[in-house]
């Protein structure tokens, strides 16, 4: 059993996920962790797949769907890695009038305190003349919520953005 990371993008329309996953299923592939979402007008798929046959067979299996739906596909063989142990303990919500540098400044500050981003979702939204940027980051912060809030505090003024930092409490029952 080998693993690969499959990336698929195409103009958003109904049926992309069905076509891709049916083709994978028919080619004896199994889907692992996946992120599938619309970004801009495009639908994007990133997923870990396990395949039984050779790499070329996966590409061949996807070919009819790729042609029919005008998709772009990228397949990277990857070694199987152990599951990451760190869990998200902090969620950072950022929003403000859109301008270049929001993501770069926030994530640079987070990297300085060893914050490991586990997922980041953002959206450019609002009135087209006055767009806003909304971003939600979840990750593991070795120094906890306070360290994150402290390192981000100066950006509220320098970037003119609203930032809130929440603990992500996992209730284990």
């Amino acid at each position: 059993m080998s693993q690969a990371l499959l990336t698929v993008i195409g103009e958003d329309r109904p049926g992309i996920v069905a076509a891709v996953t049916q083709a994978l299923y028919a080619a004896d592939c199994a889907i692992g962790d996946a992120s599938m979402m619309r970004l801009g007008g495009y639908f994007t798929i990133m997923q870990v797949i396990e395949y039984q046959r050779d790499f070329g067979a996966v590409e061949t299996a996807l070919d009819p769907a790729v042609k029919r739906l005008n998709l772009r596909v990228h397949l990277d063989p990857i070694p199987s890695l152990p599951r990451q142990e760190d869990v998200a303990n902090v969620r950072v919500t950022v929003y403000g009038a859109d301008h270049p540098g929001i993501v770069a400044s926030v994530t640079d500050a987070l990297a300085r305190i060893g914050f490991n981003i586990i997922d980041l979702e953002s959206e450019r939204s609002g009135n087209p003349e006055r767009p806003i940027y909304v971003m939600v980051i979840q990750g593991s912060a070795p120094g906890g919520t306070k360290a994150v809030a402290d390192v981000l505090e100066p950006l509220k003024i320098s970037q003119g953005i609203e930032i809130t930092v929440h603990p992500v409490d996992t209730v284990l029952l």
Partner: peptide, 13 residues
């Protein structure tokens, strides 16, 4: 909204 885990559903939150 809160994150939950359960003894009857190991590993997943």
């Amino acid at each position: 909204v809160g994150r939950e885990g359960c003894m009857s559903v190991p590993d997943f939150t």
